[in-house]
Nucleic acid binder design. Structure first.
Lengths: 195, 195
DNA sequence: GGTTAATTTGAACATTCATTCAAGCAGAAG
DNA sequence: CTTCTGCTTGAATGAATGTTCAAATTAACC
């Protein structure tokens, strides 16, 4: 073997942050080299190409997102309350400096025109998340209703992810989401998560 | 004077389409040269830089969008019915091949991280559109309610603009929007616009 | 018709891009 | 200790990037 292999997980994490912020075209391999501390050769041996690197970042982000969603929905007193809490946190996140929307959403919009493999993966990840919502909602609603609600939730998630850049105060955003998803138990969320 | 000045409007239109599809980083000046048929020198004399060109494209698109919105809202039997019709068309547009979301939304996500002048303009244009919705809604609702509704509409517009890429059938999308904006007169829209 | 001024031209610019590869190096195997 | 193996190194690659500018072109004016 050679010296010491670099920490693959750490490199992917660094790349995720970089691509998330700057996008695929906006981030150069030089940026990647700086962000990871690795030399080009190592990166290309390990990931093959810039696209391979981006792919790894996407996978990392999607896995993390799904895990976080499952965790919050499992821990909540009910699926509905968990969704409320999740949306609430999303809105709060959009107020922080350096807000970066959602990596999957940004990738979706940037890569759709290419019609390449990356875009197909992004669609798949987003669909998985929608399916996750639907599955959880099926605990409390009939299947049709659950799917319908899942679509509604996704639509609002996308809305928050874009609207978040406009720097409105959180109450405006929250009111809009509450109005759009009136079937969610917002009161229970107010109690559980505070305000 | 010189030969014949190129058709500025046409050039901006071509650029809009190009940038809309490929994004700021994704579109090269070489692409612009090909799309417009002009030589680099002419472009730089007329627009100063790639950023200047993008700016012109943004202005063109924003103006067009606002005009189209006003037109549809003025022509509709009521503001609410007009919004229904507009959202309906947006959903239908997302089904067409080569769907490109919304130029302002895409710009918002791509340019936010730069924090530059372009991003500030995009925010301004989006805010103008939201204000437009609010002003029209004030015809039928008290001011607070109107602003609230305008935010909700924007949120759904953003949702459609992202969700549109997932290639769901139009009924799924429409049902989600109807569920999220239940105060809109969807029935009148069904009659007016057909289905 | 000759002069002027505005506009287009397109090759050339330095820089940055994604990517490659021969050389260097550290641990494992004998 | 020597050999082998495979990861790391980082300068170098050619192509593509955004931008410039001197020369060419053309319409308007006297």
């Amino acid at each position: 073997m050679a010296r010491v292999q670099f920490d693959r997980e750490q490199v992917i994490q660094d790349c995720t942050q970089l691509f998330w912020q700057k996008g695929f075209s906006g981030a150069s391999m030089q940026n990647v080299v700086q962000a990871t501390g690795l030399k080009p050769g190592s990166l290309y041996l390990a990931f093959g190409s810039k696209e391979g690197l981006y792919q790894a970042a996407l996978e990392h982000y999607a896995g993390q997102s799904q895990a976080a969603l499952c965790q919050i929905l499992e821990a909540a007193p009910s699926v509905g309350a968990g969704i409320c809490q999740h949306l609430r946190r999303m809105i709060e996140a959009s107020e922080k400096a350096g807000y970066c929307s959602c990596f999957l959403v940004k990738s979706q919009l940037e890569l759709a025109a290419t019609g390449g493999d990356l875009h197909r993966r992004v669609c798949a990840y987003l669909t998985e998340i929608e399916d996750l919502y639907a599955q959880y909602l099926e605990r409390d609603y009939p299947q049709d209703q659950a799917r319908q609600y899942a679509t509604s939730v996704m639509m609002h998630v996308f809305g928050i992810r874009v609207y978040g850049y406009l720097e409105r105060d959180r109450d405006t955003l929250l009111a809009a989401v509450k109005g759009g998803l009136p079937w969610l138990p917002w009161d229970s969320c107010d109690q559980a998560a505070g305000s």
